[in-house]
Amino acid sequence: MLEVTGLTTKYGAISALRDASLTVGAGEVVGLIGPNGAGKTTLLGSIAGLLPIDSGTIRFDGNDITSGAPEKILRAGLSLVPEHRRIFADMTVEENLKIGGVTRSGAERAELLDEMAELFPVLRDKWDTPAGYMSGGEAQQLAIARALMSKPKLIMMDEPSLGLAPILVDLVFELIDTLRAQGRTILVVEQNATRMLRAADRAYVLRSGEVVATGTGAELLDRSDLFDTFVGG
């Protein structure tokens, strides 16, 4: 479904990604793990069209979407839940969700709103509250719900458990399970490697901008050298 080949991205002089490749098949949950600064966020940002790409190609559903504008890539069916959630703090929960469904027709948007209210009971209770007043866990759910409002074929999440208390981290992973059960395709960047590997069908390990390992979640969990990737050695 998503095919990234030989992606290289630079921030000024900084090479944030070097020749990174990955694929995501329909219905899969794929994890992207690696230490901080490994280039995970850059990879998602490059796919979503937020960052300029130096070389490599990105294909989605057979179409070349390399270096497309973010709004075009979303319309192709790829939605990103950005790092730090980046909800619109001054706007209400409902308004945030509506923006998420900006590409949908009015009737469809209303349907999706009902669907989100059901999927995320927390949001229903805060429907008319400005999103800036929500706690980290609530805001994360809003960010995910907002991304779902575009009915994406593939949803990408950047560090959904960042800055959340352990119990809320559980909630995020439960949510990923729920979405998987609905048959959605998900690509998640996560720092919580063990949890991610348990939740994912497959995963890629990134280090210093390069893909250094790949396999099913279970395979990678058994890799004894994985700890070194994070802790060094």
């Binding site: 352990p166 720092q191 919580n192 490697a193 063990t194 949890r195 700890f227 994070f230 802790v231």
Partner: peptide, 18 residues
């Protein structure tokens, strides 16, 4: 520090802590 179980847990999120 490297031998510290809490540190490993914080880094890998292993079940030891959570």
């Amino acid at each position: 520090v490297q031998a510290n179980a809490r540190v490993q847990a914080a880094y890998l999120g292993s079940a030891a802590d959570r």
